[in-house]
Structure formats: structure tokens, C-alpha cells
Design a protein around this nucleic acid. Sequence first.
DNA 1: GAATTAGTAAACCAACTGGTTTACCATATC
DNA 2: GATATGGTAAACCAGTTGGTTTACTAATTC
Lengths: 130, 130
Amino acid sequence: MAASESSRKHHRYSEVAAVAAKTAALDAVFQALADPTRRRILADLARGESSTLTLAMPHRMSLPAVSKHLGVLERAGLIERRLIGRERRCRLVAKPFRSASAWLEFYRRFWDDQFDRLTDFIQTTDKEAS
Amino acid sequence: MAASESSRKHHRYSEVAAVAAKTAALDAVFQALADPTRRRILADLARGESSTLTLAMPHRMSLPAVSKHLGVLERAGLIERRLIGRERRCRLVAKPFRSASAWLEFYRRFWDDQFDRLTDFIQTTDKEAS
DNA sequence: GAATTAGTAAACCAACTGGTTTACCATATC
DNA sequence: GATATGGTAAACCAGTTGGTTTACTAATTC
């Protein structure tokens, strides 16, 4: 096998691996965002760094439950944590938000312009109603 | 109870209900997006309307499995379906994409400017490395 | 009208999720 | 150094998810 061929193959493999990695990352991010408790935690962290206990306060569930949610957010890369004394301080990490946003952005054309089927429907309905 | 008070109370209740509805809708949308098979289906639908069988072709799984994925997407409001003969034609619906994008948009400030902690970290690391 | 096509429905399964409680470990305070 | 604080770990549980197969229906084609 020629070196160029091998390298091409390797390149292709890397691409597949990279896409797979991105795909898995998106899985984790969207999965993490699909829970209201976790979205609330992120909203609270948007106001500044915070500890497990502080983040747990608004939620009517046990501390271990919130701790697990933080684990999910961390595994999705949406937060970072560091120990400060016996406290575990959390903060937002921007990158996965950016990735998710970029993915959604692709579908923007469906509501930016004439491709928006819902708008078509509403306009039709309005005409019929008036 | 005064009418204004009652109406205010009702208004407050409506707000809570509305937020709850939006929250549940976001749950469903992010949950639906958290699967690579479903994201691929959406990508295919972005190129135009398509039927269950056609959408199933790229996937190495049974037809009922794909049919279920379409059910998830429909329940999340991301697609609409209509019968054409014995075919079930699917198409994208823009609104939920818009909602999800709007939600993520709130976190944009974390990568638009100095709030991006990851950038800070990378810059620090680069300085240390050089 | 018989056979093929385009699906959905239902039953089943293993793995994962989101919660619980109980037990534990560091760190901080008295 | 005993006690209180801020958590995590582990075991457990019910419900959901993502897949399967088998069975069925309705529309189309021969």
C-alpha cells in the first residue's frame, strides 16, 4: 500500500472519528439540556460561579440527586468544577453551548425565509379567518 | 375577592402554566435532538420532504425503529406528517428549532466576550507553554 | 382479486435515567 | 479532638428509551 494511500485512508478515518466524536458530544450536550433541573442549574451558573449546596437550594430533591445532575453537566462539558476547601465550585464552560448553537444554526434558514412552512400555514389560516 | 385580584391571580397562574408548557416543550425538543439517528433524519428532511422508507434507508436498523424515531420527532413538534396514498410524508417544522436556538442564545454572552472562561484557560496555557 | 408495498401496533428486552436512602470522607469549626 | 458541614459513593427502584420480532392494515400493482 502506497504511503499516500495509507495517509489518505488515515485521514478519512480521522474524519470519521472526528465526526463520531462531535456526534457523541452533541448527544451528551442535548441530553444534558433536556432536563429542566439542569437547565435551571445552568441559568443559575450564568449569574456566577456557585457551589453544589447553593445550586441545590432551589430544587425540591435530595442533595445526591443534584450532585448527579452536576455530574451529567460536567460529563457533557457544560460546566467545570474545582475544589475550594470542602466546597465544590462550578462554573459554565462556553464551548458546548457554542457547538449546540452552531448545529441549530443550520436549520435557521427554515424560519428566516420562505422555507418556514409554519409561517406559510399561519398566513393561510389568517387569510381564511379574515 | 376583587375582580382585579382574581384576574391577577389568573394571570400569574397562566404565566406559570405557560412557562411550564415551554419547559416541557424544551425538554421534548432537546431530548429529540439528543440522538444521532434523529439528527440525521432532520438533516435529510432539511433537503426536502421525505417518506418513512426513504428516511429509513441510511440507517442500519429495522423500519419500526425508524418509525418510532419519527414519532419522537413528531411529538417534539420538529416534524409534521401527512398521508399521501400509502406513503407518510414528513417535513420539518421551524418553530421548535427557533425555541431551542433562542434558549441557547441566552448563553451566547459566555463566548461572545471576556466571559468565555475556556478562552482564558487556553490563553493561560499557551503562555505557560511558550 | 391476488400479491406487493409502505408502513404502524404490540409485545418484549436490555440498558439508561432520575430519583431515593444510607453510608462514608474530608474540611472546617468549637 | 469532637462535632458540624459540604459534599460524593453505592445500592436500590420505577419508569423511560432504543432496539428487536412478529403480526397486522391499507393502498397499489399485476
